[in-house]
């Protein structure tokens, strides 16, 4: 169970996430929607701990992960893997090596520096690729592959980490509809067949409706909607995507007004 308790994270004057409360059960597939800059990416990066919250705690199965450091932090990052909108693979390396880089955190350093991997791990990497119909590209240079292929490689790399949570930050925002479908289906399959908890940021409400049973809406750093897809009415969507009432409005008042309109439904799902 992932518990996010009053988490706040800011960069200078900009508050990316403020006072976020969230509870997610193991095996859920949750979509997060909101305007760009609403704090969706920051929320995922906080869970993976690329960012550290200034306030609040993040717990996984009762273990507090928001204050981990060093070796324990790296161990946590392996369990909560993340994939990105721009895939962020290493373009000059071949596909297989890119997938194997998922194990950087747990392999001894010396052989890894010379790209030496045990036979079993290579086989596992190839099988992960094969599940995503990418096995025929193992020896190709990643930079020559299409966006859809690169995102599937990123998923294979994430799966090689044997994670408990998969965080997907706009995984299909740079893809054409057909490839978006393939990638979203793969993520849903992972959730269904392996029981991996999935949090996926989406820019498209349609996709969120189709693949997620539960949706979270974020606006200006705050969670303003949390409920089953069936509750995602037109007016709810409008509220999530609502612009600032005044262009220069910077205080938290507006958010405080927003929250009562759409009551946070965490309790229902907890």
């Amino acid at each position: 169970m992932l518990e996010i308790d009053k988490v706040t994270c800011s960069f200078g004057d900009v508050t990316a996430v403020k006072q976020a409360n969230l509870t997610i059960q193991r095996g859920e597939m949750v979509g997060i929607i909101g305007r760009s800059g609403s704090g969706k990416s920051s929320l995922l990066r906080l869970i993976n701990r690329l960012y550290t919250p200034q306030e609040g705690t993040i717990r996984w199965d009762g273990q507090t992960v928001s204050d981990l450091k060093g070796r324990e932090l790296r161990a946590w990052r392996q369990r909560a893997t993340i994939i990105f909108q721009d895939y962020n693979l290493i373009p000059r390396l071949d596909v297989l090596t890119n997938v194997l880089l998922g194990t950087l955190g747990r392999r001894p350093l010396a052989p890894v520096m010379f790209k030496q991997w045990p036979k079993e791990l290579r086989a596992q990497a190839v099988l992960e690729l094969d599940r995503l119909s990418m096995a025929d590209t193992v020896f190709k240079r990643t930079q020559f592959l299409s966006g859809g292929q690169q995102q599937r490689i990123a998923i294979a790399r994430a799966m090689l980490q044997e994670p408990e949570i998969l965080l997907a930050d706009e995984p299909v925002a740079s893809l054409d509809p057909i490839n978006a479908e393939i990638v979203m289906q793969s993520i849903a399959d992972i959730n269904a067949s392996r029981g991996i908890t999935v949090l996926v940021n989406l820019h498209s409400i349609d996709i969120a409706r189709r693949y997620c049973r539960r949706v979270i809406g974020m606006n200006r750093g705050s969670i303003v909607f949390d409920g089953p897809v069936s509750d995602l009415t037109e007016s709810a969507v409008a509220e999530i995507y609502r612009k600032r009432t005044q262009p220069c409005e910077c205080s938290g008042d507006a958010v405080a007004q927003v929250q009562p309109v759409m009551p946070v439904a965490t309790a229902v799902y907890a």
């Binding site: 290579r122 099988l127 599940r131 490839n179 393939i182 399959d189």
Partner: peptide, 24 residues
């Protein structure tokens, strides 16, 4: 795109032996 068979079946036999030889 090879979207036609994107749904992999667990028993799709991938030739690991051939892969290993190729890798070597």
């Amino acid at each position: 795109m090879d979207g036609a068979h994107h749904n992999p079946t667990p028993d799709s036999p991938f030739d690991l032996v051939a892969f290993e030889a190729d890798w070597n």
